[in-house]
Nucleic acid binder design. Structure first.
Lengths: 210, 210
DNA sequence: AAAATATACCCCTTTAAGGGTGAAAAGAAG
DNA sequence: CTTCTTTTCACCCTTAAAGGGGTATATTTT
């Protein structure tokens, strides 16, 4: 574990005001040190190696290589680095991708530097901070659609299909006959207006039925 | 949208100190009103109807009906209520279940009442607050195992399999031959020591390979 | 140079998928 | 108490996919 007071921060953000603003505030109102700031990942790419950062604050909308594409590169360069993403966008896919690709935290740009400093502390302690709107997106992605056209049993079977189970396995698991499973599957297809497992899973995922 | 200052809060929590502590602090240091507090859901069950709460602070470890089981009941009673979960536990399954079942926020009990009040504000504004440790769990659940025995291509194909795609669809999507897909699938099976799609998906999910 | 990865092709047999139709039993809702 | 929905089960059919075996060759990475 790093000594928190020694934490070395790097900021990669193209907007100079935001970049230098955060840097100034972190340096003057926190125990952390901003060792470098860069306006793009392409500029940071080689110089960052000698920065040896503990935490990187990474914008997503960067000129050249995007923050999303920079993520895996930085993770490979510094396997133990904590990365806090910064963005104006908050579409579900981008957020989920960033988190799935190793971001430790995720904030939108209306976040005060106080919260960012708090976030640095949290990631250094192993937490996974996110701003409320981001958390909301993540929570929503975990919640299911309540207006499903599918019955409980159909949803249950579709979930098992999405786990790759075949008719036989589903029948065994639910203590019903294979023929019954077939009937349910056929009804699912009719309701979702599809005619294959893959289509059904895709439509269901799009509509959060499963 | 409710007027925030009118927000009616109900607390369901068996520990009297915590319950009355939060109630007192919310009533005296926030614009919100704690209209009722209950030591269990079973006691709250009928009385809560006339409380007409906007936000419910719900403990998970309750005597009798657990907070997890109370969640769907409360959601049915008050479809638009925001529920903030409170718990000492923070196992991945419990947290994910609560969020998937309609909880708007999730905090562990080492959370200060200041943060709870902040959380009430956030949920009223449509946010999805969670404490850093909870966020960490959620993020981890989105992140994949880095020590995968599978190659990139194999992982990619396994992901498509998990979406229900068959060999032909995978081949089309990746611009490769069906036979190539077959070879990859065979190698995946060997590496994961399985011999069917469903087993492969299960093993991979267990180990966060996909 | 060696190892890992991605690609492609052949053989083979078994099993699952998808579609059509009908109908009994259990539950929920009026 | 009856009507509607859900869940259950059955038998028909054809085609497509799955799974197992082996072999081989670019390409990339180490």
């Amino acid at each position: 574990m790093y000594n928190q007071a020694d934490a070395r921060i790097v900021i990669i953000e193209d907007d100079e005001t935001i970049r230098e603003g955060y840097a100034y505030l972190i340096n003057h109102t926190s125990p952390y040190t901003v060792v470098s700031t860069y306006p793009s990942f392409d500029i940071a790419r080689h110089k960052i190696i000698k920065d040896n950062p503990d935490v990187i604050i990474l914008d997503i909308q960067l000129p050249g290589t995007s923050g999303i594409d920079a993520l895996p590169v930085l993770k490979k360069l510094f396997p133990h680095v904590y990365i806090i993403m910064l963005t104006v966008y908050e579409t579900e896919k981008i957020i989920l991708d960033a988190l799935a690709n190793g971001a430790s935290g995720y904030f939108t740009k209306n976040t005060s530097s106080v919260k960012i400093i708090e976030a640095i502390k949290e990631v250094m302690q192993g937490g996974g901070p996110m701003s409320p709107d981001v958390a909301k997106t993540v929570i929503m992605s975990l919640q299911k659609n309540q207006n499903s056209p599918l019955t409980k049993r159909e949803t249950q079977i579709l979930e098992l299909i999405s786990k790759g189970k075949d008719r036989g396995e589903i029948a065994q698991e639910l203590f019903i006959e294979i023929e019954t499973v077939k009937t349910h599957v056929k009804n699912i297809y009719i309701k979702l207006n599809v005619n294959s497992k893959s289509e059904a899973i895709n439509i269901a995922r799009q509509n959060r039925l499963i």
